[in-house]
Every structure is written in C-alpha cells, then in structure tokens.
C-alpha cells in the first residue's frame, strides 16, 4: 500500500496548485488528476487565476517606493502624524459627505437625494485625483456605454462636451446609493477634470440644482428615476453651462451614436 492509494482531498489540490503539497503526496495527486478530468480542469483554472492575479498586480512590488513611505519621515513629527494617519482615510470620505450634506440640506429636502449627491461628489473627488487610473474603460472602447447602461439599468450616454474643451476620457462602474453607478470623466487640455455621474435615484424629478462645497461644485438633477450629477471646479457660470448642455443632451433622447463617435477620437491625440 503506497501513499498514492490514499484518496486525494480538495485541500491537497489547492496545496498542489500553491506549491505547498508535501513531496510525498505529489505523485498521488498527479495520478489522481490523470484520471479525474474535472479536478484537473479545476487545477488548471486555479493556476490560470493565480497567473492572472500575478500578471495584473505583481509589478507593483517593483515600483520605486514613493517618498511618503520613508520611515523616518513617517515618524518625525510624531503627534501630528499619528492623528493624520489614523483619521485620513475616514476623514477624506466622511468629511466630503458631511460637508456636502450640510450644504445641501436647505436646497434639497429629499433625503435620498442628499445621499445621492454625496456619493457622486465623493466619487468625483476620489477619481479626479487619480493620475494613472482615472477611469476603468476608455472612451475609445465601444462597449463603454453598453456596459455601463446595462449595469445601471438605463440607457446612458456620455454627453459631448467638446464645446467646453472637455474630452471624454472614459468611465467606470461604482457602487451607488441605490445600485450601480456610472462615472464618466472629462478633461480639459489644461488637465481640469469634470465628472458626470449617473445612477438610480429614489427621488422625484427635479430641476437643475447648483451646490458648491469648497473648491468643488456640482449640478444635479433627477429625471425618470435616474439622477445625474455634473461635478467640477467651483466656477458657477461655467459649470451650469456645462450641466445644461449635458441636460439637454439627455433630454433630447436622440440615438447615442453620434455622441459616441465624436467622443471617441482620443487615443492618439
């Protein structure tokens, strides 16, 4: 009676994939896989997953470590650093939301609406700061709108804002207050970023509303149970103009094709 006669367990298959199987069980597992095609397929699939994960994220460990992680820097101004580090993450998220809600209370009595705008503004603030990954799917990819429309559950379009020197970079999918949300990002040649956020809203139809919160502002409206938020730098006239343009385009209910095509030629430029 050899080890290879001992039945192979699921844990052993995982250990085999992860290279931590005791050597004396290796032959047994390999013999098992030779006659159990389903298990062999699982093993191949798990390996492919691991390869994909390493391919996607492995290189990050070879990046030059940014200065902010220099340990001496981190510990120097002790007390202040502790406070900042401990609360930075939460403050960034909650502060934005709280400020926004406080600001919006008088203007918009509908509670669902406030959470909605807070989410939109959080997303805006988070992603405009992204240098390398501001979007998930580029404007040039034809599945951008079908994908986000399917996830949000409404026919979305990314308004053409070229008239305001705003080029569509692309979009991403986000968790929203009432389900998935789409965030489209636009950029001026000077690198100013605007976002257009769309998601289901549990709020009645509204007219356009302008709200500023610090150096960021947003114009929002709800139409057919979809909330739209245009966010950007707090320059009132310009933001309202841009939002009105987006609003008109959403209202016109024209086929999206022209918008898509015009918004696309980004790649080489």
């Amino acid at each position: 009676m050899m080890e290879r006669d001992v039945p192979v367990t699921a844990d052993e298959l995982h250990a085999y994939v992860d290279g931590v199987l005791p050597p004396d069980r290796r032959a047994a597992v390999e013999a098992w896989l030779a006659v159990h095609p389903n298990d062999a397929a699982d093993v191949a699939q798990w390996r492919a997953q691991a390869d994909a994960i390493r391919a996607r994220y492995g290189a990050i460990a070879s990046e030059t470590v940014p200065e902010r992680f220099d340990l001496d820097r981190l510990t120097r101004p002790r007390s202040s650093w502790r406070a900042i580090a401990a609360t930075a993450l939460i403050a960034a998220a909650i502060g934005a939301a709280a400020g926004w809600i406080a600001h919006g209370v008088s203007a918009s009595p509908h509670p669902g609406f406030e959470q909605f705008s807070a989410e939109a503004l959080n997303a805006h603030r988070l992603y405009i700061a992204e240098v390398r990954h501001p979007i998930e799917v580029g404007a040039g990819e034809s599945h951008l709108l079908p994908w986000l429309s399917r996830r949000v559950g409404a026919t979305l379009r990314a308004p053409n804002l070229e008239a305001y020197s705003l080029k569509l970079l692309g979009g991403r999918l986000l968790p929203g207050p009432n389900g998935p949300a789409a965030l489209f990002m636009y950029e001026t040649p000077a690198g100013e970023r605007y976002t257009f956020y769309c998601s289901r809203a549990n709020a009645p139809r509204t007219a356009l509303r302008y709200n500023a919160s610090g150096d960021t502002a947003a114009v929002l409206w709800v139409e057919s149970e979809i909330g739209y938020v245009v966010s950007g730098p707090a320059a009132r006239e310009r933001l309202i103009e841009i939002a009105q343009s987006a609003y008109r385009e959403m209202e016109s209910r024209l086929p999206t094709r022209s918008t898509e095509n015009e918004a696309m030629p980004r790649r080489g430029s």
């Binding site: 994960i53 996607r56 994220y57 492995g58 990050i60 460990a61 070879s62 990046e63 470590v65 940014p66 902010r68 992680f69 340990l71 981190l74 510990t75 650093w81 502790r82 580090a85 401990a86 930075a88 993450l89 960034a92 988070l126 700061a129 992204e130 390398r132 990954h133």
Partner: peptide, 28 residues
C-alpha cells in the same frame, strides 16, 4: 513596503486608498 503596496492595491483596487492603507500600516 513594496509587497504591502502590491497586496493593498489588489485588495482595494484603488491606488490612492491602497497607499493610504500602507502608510497607516507603517505608522501603526
């Protein structure tokens, strides 16, 4: 640090959040 950044990025899928997490981890 390099490995922590890699793990954090994969865990959160967001470079900024990930690096904030790493920094917070180091401080602690």
């Amino acid at each position: 640090v390099p490995a922590l950044r890699r793990y954090a990025r994969a865990l959160t899928r967001d470079a900024e959040v990930a690096d904030d997490l790493v920094q917070d981890t180091l401080v602690r």
